[in-house]
Computed example of a mutant assay.
Amino acid sequence: MFKIAVLISGGGTNLQAIIDGIKSNELECSIEYVISDNKNAGGILRAEREGIKTLIFDKKEYSREEISNNITNTLHGKVDLVVLAGFLSILKGDIIREFNNRIINLHPSLIPNFCGKGMYGDRVHKAVLESGVEKSGCTVHFVDEGTDTGEIIQQAEVKVDTDDTVETLRAKVNCEEHKLIVNVIKQLIGKTQE
């Protein structure tokens, strides 16, 4: 059985999409761990309701290096894929090498636009609206040493309407994120079975 860990910082709606994908047999995998860098993340409750092991390395108590090292030590030899689903801490060091091409991140824009340092969550949607572009979307990419610089696996587009607000754009992008993350995990599971 293909094993994954999901890293979150917030409500965990993309985690829920993965859980639902497993329950509907669309995804043939198990979530071994849900790890958060925020002790108040709503996604932890989602995981606990499903009986998934949860760990918290709160960014107010741990440095970025400590968070990365703790995650590496926890997941070493235990999972096939690490999924960053709204995880706001930047991973550093050994984890990138140990899980080379086995860490994916979901970003709420069409990379290479509106990404990199400081671009996350509603900041991305605000920047998209201020720029006047006609489309946005989301990207799943492999994680490397940079910020949002790893190889793009797949993207999904949404139309940006003139009356969109941060909230309406977020809702549209979220809807696509839920489908995209499940599709990409499915694709990666398929590759290991070839």
Rank of each mutant, 00 (worst) to 15 (best):
1 M>I: 15
3 K>M: 14
8 I>Y: 14
11 G>T: 14
18 I>K: 02
19 I>Y: 09
20 D>E: 15
23 K>H: 13
23 K>A: 13
24 S>G: 07
25 N>K: 15
28 E>R: 13
29 C>E: 03
31 I>P: 01
34 V>P: 04
34 V>Q: 04
37 D>H: 02
37 D>I: 08
38 N>D: 15
38 N>G: 07
39 K>A: 11
40 N>K: 14
44 I>T: 08
44 I>R: 06
45 L>G: 12
47 A>E: 01
48 E>T: 12
49 R>W: 00
49 R>H: 07
50 E>Y: 11
50 E>Q: 14
50 E>F: 08
51 G>L: 12
57 F>W: 06
58 D>H: 06
59 K>V: 12
60 K>V: 06
61 E>C: 08
63 S>T: 15
63 S>Q: 06
63 S>P: 06
64 R>E: 12
65 E>G: 11
69 N>E: 15
70 N>V: 03
70 N>F: 03
70 N>Q: 08
71 I>A: 03
71 I>D: 01
72 T>Q: 13
73 N>G: 07
73 N>T: 10
76 H>K: 15
76 H>G: 07
78 K>M: 07
81 L>R: 00
82 V>Y: 01
83 V>F: 00
84 L>D: 04
85 A>Q: 05
85 A>H: 05
86 G>A: 04
87 F>Q: 00
88 L>E: 08
90 I>Q: 03
94 D>M: 06
94 D>E: 14
95 I>E: 00
96 I>H: 02
96 I>K: 01
97 R>D: 10
98 E>T: 01
98 E>K: 05
99 F>M: 02
99 F>P: 00
100 N>W: 05
101 N>A: 10
102 R>L: 03
105 N>G: 02
106 L>V: 04
106 L>D: 02
107 H>Q: 03
108 P>L: 02
108 P>E: 03
108 P>W: 02
109 S>L: 03
110 L>N: 00
112 P>V: 06
114 F>E: 00
115 C>H: 09
115 C>K: 03
116 G>H: 05
116 G>T: 04
119 M>Y: 11
121 G>C: 11
122 D>P: 01
122 D>M: 06
124 V>P: 05
129 L>C: 07
130 E>F: 01
130 E>K: 05
131 S>N: 10
132 G>D: 07
133 V>Q: 01
138 C>F: 10
138 C>S: 10
141 H>I: 07
142 F>L: 06
142 F>M: 08
144 D>W: 07
145 E>I: 10
146 G>M: 04
147 T>N: 08
147 T>W: 00
149 T>Q: 10
149 T>S: 14
149 T>Y: 09
151 E>L: 13
152 I>G: 09
154 Q>D: 14
155 Q>P: 00
155 Q>M: 11
162 T>G: 03
163 D>Q: 07
165 T>W: 05
166 V>I: 14
167 E>G: 02
169 L>F: 04
169 L>I: 01
169 L>S: 01
170 R>S: 13
171 A>R: 10
172 K>L: 08
173 V>C: 00
174 N>T: 05
174 N>S: 11
175 C>K: 14
176 E>K: 15
176 E>W: 04
178 H>A: 05
179 K>V: 13
180 L>F: 06
180 L>K: 01
184 V>D: 08
185 I>G: 01
186 K>E: 01
187 Q>E: 11
187 Q>V: 00
188 L>E: 04
190 G>C: 12
191 K>D: 14
192 T>D: 08
192 T>L: 11
192 T>E: 12
192 T>Y: 09
193 Q>D: 09
194 E>M: 13
194 E>T: 12
